[in-house]
């Protein structure tokens, strides 16, 4: 077990390092951010001074060296634009993103589990076909477009919910959250709904497929033969076994949600890390982009690690290697 932990730990460090190298190499392709910072009438000396202040005077290799050495000291570098530690900028906005991601995940699970179980248990019914067609539509539509349509219908036309932005926030365990007040929650509904649709559609399909597999298993047939009622069999035996594989895709789904949050947050002007990334790309704010990607990579690696452990706990047949 201990060996496994160290192995995974080394793996995490290697992944993060690879990401940092890759990002640094790629970023050397982008335009020089100095020109966005200095006024248009800046002279050569002023530009040189700005470069020095932003730490852009050195070669990329030296810059990377600086980055790594300060990384070891826990310093992730600072934003060109905000002149604040990049990590702090990300952490400040993280609660907003987690809020919609978690709510989206919850919506997806709550809707997908019954639908998936149903479609998997009686795959030949017309309503099951409708569910499947619906989920295929959900996979096929661009999420950002759906968000726009939802805004147009529910915010602009019906004026039921606000069209964008985050509502009032409250402190909860030191984090700023918005779901505690009704007004805050109203702001949350559309973005979370938009974000959930893709995941929801995929979940339905996964659960259905697993359910169909499970239904073929002998113990289900036994249970049915013993006269257990259908609903009980479905949810007690069927669902339980169908859900195990879900744990493995949890990491992937979190990844997708975080990724698509960039689009959702941009549409809804939701002040999370996704919008920060997109804004930083527009502004050429290299340090924030680097730290964002490393941070997200770190999150994925950790989530996948937890998933592996969970999987081993849930399904004892699998031994942690």
């Amino acid at each position: 077990m201990f060996g496994y932990f160290t192995k995974r730990l080394i793996q995490i460090v290697v992944v993060l390092w690879a990401v940092s190298v890759l990002v640094f190499v790629m970023m050397s392709f982008t335009g020089d951010p100095t020109y966005m910072m200095v006024p248009l009438d800046a002279t050569e000396e002023q530009i040189a001074q700005a470069r020095r202040l932003l730490g852009l005077n050195d070669s990329h290799l030296v810059q990377y060296g600086h980055f790594l050495s300060s990384l070891v000291r826990g310093d992730f570098g600072r934003s060109f634009v905000f002149r604040q530690p990049a990590m702090q900028l990300i952490l400040e906005r993280l609660p907003a993103t987690l809020e919609i991601v978690i709510l989206a995940m919850a919506i997806a699970l709550v809707v997908a589990i019954p639908l998936g179980v149903y479609a998997g248990a009686s795959p030949e019914r017309a309503s099951s076909h409708a569910v499947m067609a619906g989920s295929l539509v959900g996979i096929s539509l661009p999420g950002f477009w759906l968000g726009m349509v939802l805004i147009y219908v529910f915010a602009v036309k019906l004026q039921l919910v606000p069209s964008s932005g985050r509502g009032p926030t409250q402190e909860l365990f030191g984090l700023r959250v918005s779901f505690l007040s009704w007004e805050g929650f109203r702001h949350l509904i559309l973005p979370a709904l938009t974000l959930s649709v893709g995941t929801l559609a995929i979940l339905i399909r996964i659960i259905r497929a697993e359910m169909m597999e499970v239904m073929k298993q002998d113990y289900i047939k036994f249970a049915r033969a013993k006269g257990a009622d259908r609903r009980g069999v479905l949810f007690k035996h069927g669902l339980k076994n169908a859900l195990i594989p879900l744990v493995t895709v949890f990491g992937l789904m979190m990844g997708d949600l975080i990724a698509f949050a960039t689009l959702t947050e941009t549409i809804f002007a939701w002040p999370g890390i996704g919008k920060l990334l997109v804004d930083s790309i527009y502004r050429g704010d290299r340090p924030v982009i680097v730290v964002y990607l490393m941070f997200v990579a770190f999150m994925f690696v950790v989530v996948n690690f937890v998933v592996d452990i969970l999987y081993a706990v849930i399904d004892p047949r699998i031994k942690v290697k």
Binding site: V15, A18, V19, M26, F29, G255, D256, L263, L293, F300
Partner: peptide, 18 residues
């Protein structure tokens, strides 16, 4: 390593550099 990243994010990042 690449699979540990969602493809949209990777593509977005590549395009921001290109």
């Amino acid at each position: 390593i690449q699979l540990s990243f969602p493809s949209v994010l990777t593509a977005l990042f590549l395009m921001s550099a290109f």
